[in-house]
Design a binder for these strands. Structure first.
Lengths: 188, 188
DNA sequence: ATTTATATACCGGCTGGACGGTTTAGTGCA
DNA sequence: TGCACTAAACCGTCCAGCCGGTATATAAAT
């Protein structure tokens, strides 16, 4: 099992990477199976062998994003410093990680699914709802936690659409502000 | 000039409304000229008479959003209460208005343009950059201003993708938190 | 050991339908 | 006469999904 004769690496991963990159480069509406197959280094038939339809491919992108986020969050929870609003701190850090460095494109499944078939966002809808519930249940300062969460969502959304006007330093400063908000709250 | 014989209302407006609604309902990737024409209550020829290409239509959606935002912002500036971080307060209020009530779909041009042809977002990119510049130049508390701005961006983005888990009360509470943040800042 | 069978992983040409855009011929109002 | 369309046919392109085939690996049978 887990054999991969032709590909050097798991084909599914290569395909998902290719799709995510292409969304960044040419826009979610121009994502075609042919383009993904070429970028991933296999044929269209091979692509459809791994993902039997375009919807399945988009679902795979969404699922990987969710799995990756979940893994990262639990990893962060292990080494989390004690302090207030833990869940919100984990949540913001995860969202920021998902759109940083070599992960920069992993969230592009959102754009692709949203443009092609909004129903594919159902799992994401569920996660968002769950996240909100967690924050409500566990965070000492819900107002600050929500603001922090929404702010990193806003930041990553700007970055996804390539609309961010922020330099690396700007981004760092914003992240620092988010953390300060989560530790100190809004002034009285 | 500005005559509109057949339509009860400006055709261009009806077309833009129809397109924005359709993006909400069927997803930006499934936005077709035929569907827009049907929804707007005119023929495809009539649609292409008003917007000679799909790109032109998307550009029109973006432009209306920008114009609407600019108008609203200046209207808000007239009756703005004195206080800190004026520009950020105008900015957040405008973004929130653009995604509220009968305006709910006006920002959908972003999704449509992003999926079809990301280059059409250039004017938005410019506005975002300018907004950031304004905040930097005029806001007493830049950190709080940026967080507030990004938070409402995050909120409206969730709403655009129909991912928001927030009730009306939740939303009101978040908006109140944003305003508190802009008036009081982050705790020391 | 050799043949046969089956499964895995993939190739790549093809087709049918959808879609953007054009064209043409005509309509009703000012 | 010009403006703002309607109605419908049409064209070329693009693209998802289909399908027959291929190479390799493993298993079973002889």
């Amino acid at each position: 099992m887990f054999k991969c004769i032709r590909g050097r690496k798991n084909s599914r991963e290569r395909i998902l990477d290719a799709a995510a990159e292409l969304v960044s480069e040419i826009g979610s509406g121009r994502l075609t199976l042919d383009a993904v197959a070429e970028r991933a280094g296999l044929s269209k038939g091979g692509l459809l062998y791994n993902f039997p339809s375009k919807d399945a491919l988009l679902q795979g992108m969404i699922q990987r994003m969710i799995d990756e986020a979940s893994t990262q969050k639990e990893a962060l929870r292990e080494k989390a410093e004690p302090g207030p609003n833990l869940e919100a701190r984990l949540c913001t850090a995860t969202v920021l990680n998902l759109h940083c460095g070599n992960m920069r494109e992993i969230a592009n499944g959102l754009l692709a699914a949203s443009s092609e078939n909004p129903r594919l966002l159902e799992p994401v809808r569920h996660i968002v709802k769950e996240t909100f519930g967690n924050l409500k249940d566990t965070c000492e300062d819900l107002d600050a936690s929500l603001l922090a969460w929404l702010a990193v969502e806003g930041l990553t959304n700007l970055e996804m659409h390539d609309l961010s006007p922020f330099s690396e330093e700007d981004r760092a400063r914003i992240v620092a502000s988010v953390n300060r908000l989560l530790h100190k709250g809004i002034a009285a």
